[in-house]
Design a protein around this nucleic acid. Sequence first.
DNA 1: GCAAAAATGGACCTGCAAGTCCAAACCTGC
DNA 2: GCAGGTTTGGACTTGCAGGTCCATTTTTGC
Lengths: 201, 201
Amino acid sequence: MTRALTRKGEATRARIVAGAAAEIRERGVDDVRLEDVMAHTGTSKGQLFHYFPDGKEELLLAVAQHEADQVLVDQEPMLSNLTSWPAWQAWRDRLVERYLAQGVKCPLNGLLGQTGRRAPGAQAIVTGLMWRWQAAITEGIRQMQSTGDIAPDVDAERASAALLAGIQGGVLLLLSTGKIDHLEAALDLTIERLRASARTA
Amino acid sequence: MTRALTRKGEATRARIVAGAAAEIRERGVDDVRLEDVMAHTGTSKGQLFHYFPDGKEELLLAVAQHEADQVLVDQEPMLSNLTSWPAWQAWRDRLVERYLAQGVKCPLNGLLGQTGRRAPGAQAIVTGLMWRWQAAITEGIRQMQSTGDIAPDVDAERASAALLAGIQGGVLLLLSTGKIDHLEAALDLTIERLRASARTA
DNA sequence: GCAAAAATGGACCTGCAAGTCCAAACCTGC
DNA sequence: GCAGGTTTGGACTTGCAGGTCCATTTTTGC
């Protein structure tokens, strides 16, 4: 089923996805018309349906996957190396910085309940992202436990679940209120709690 | 500017809002057509535009306000009486229960980034909800501080911000993954942290 | 360089859902 | 009971965005 794509074709396809992503960030998921994507990427309707035969649905899914991957890429190399408290702090700072810069323009937000319902695939993409995200945090906690920086009786899965929830909620509140405070508070207090676990142990 | 509404008119208007809310929960915000609302509420298009002259936009805003209010009402009387640890636990249980029952059908989810962008008013509604929600939690923490159940050096604002973030993220993750674990973990660990503050003090 | 396949452009079609309009029914106070 | 309002029903208009189609150009493999 892998369609034959020449180099040029692949480039065009990528350009469409990137352009559509930018347009979505700007206008919001369903205020984006195919016409907008065409204008933004300098493509024609024929091209859009050439690369995405199932139309908008398929394009949106491709954009979602693209953006989901980007979320984790943006956290590297910190996220995969949570091996010391300074490293955790660096990761925390990166998160705050990234979402502060992004501001209200969250491309994945609309894909959640919204597109998630209309496209079963979008749900899977977001779920996969969350899964990978939490797995990385869990791994970080386990590493810290192995060095004794986090108490061994801390449930790594549970703690990472809570931390991820705090992050997601923090971003959500950033989107709705425009303030970064919630994200910072959630990150700082949760991480502080992990640090404290070792001290009291 | 308060339009003249007879008792019958008021009832019809309320019926439309409630019906539209139900329909939105079922289908999702923008997969709902006015026709659906008409069918669900037994009303005609003339009525819709009679009570909501600005059309769908205005109706959606009314629904958003209705649902936002409901979110807080559903947490009462617990939310306003966080005066003991059993009370906190009862509130926590209510939250879990409520969102577990609600499942994927979050009416406000779509209103965030999405409708929030298209309708400036929706943003305000969500912001107001979050503001009131956090204020209630902050008040609860302050009460517990006054009885010595939470250490006085805990920053109530910051702690409630983190807790609210955890809740929002937990619900978000419930929506995307279908699992309640994150909400529970966020609630339990954050509350536990508050309890521990008194013991170490 | 030539045939086959891929890439591109853009005119056209189509369906749908929001919004308009007006006429009929109905209350409501006097 | 009648004159003002409000409420209701539903036919009609309209604009638009997604999708179709095909003709043309470009690339690729040999």
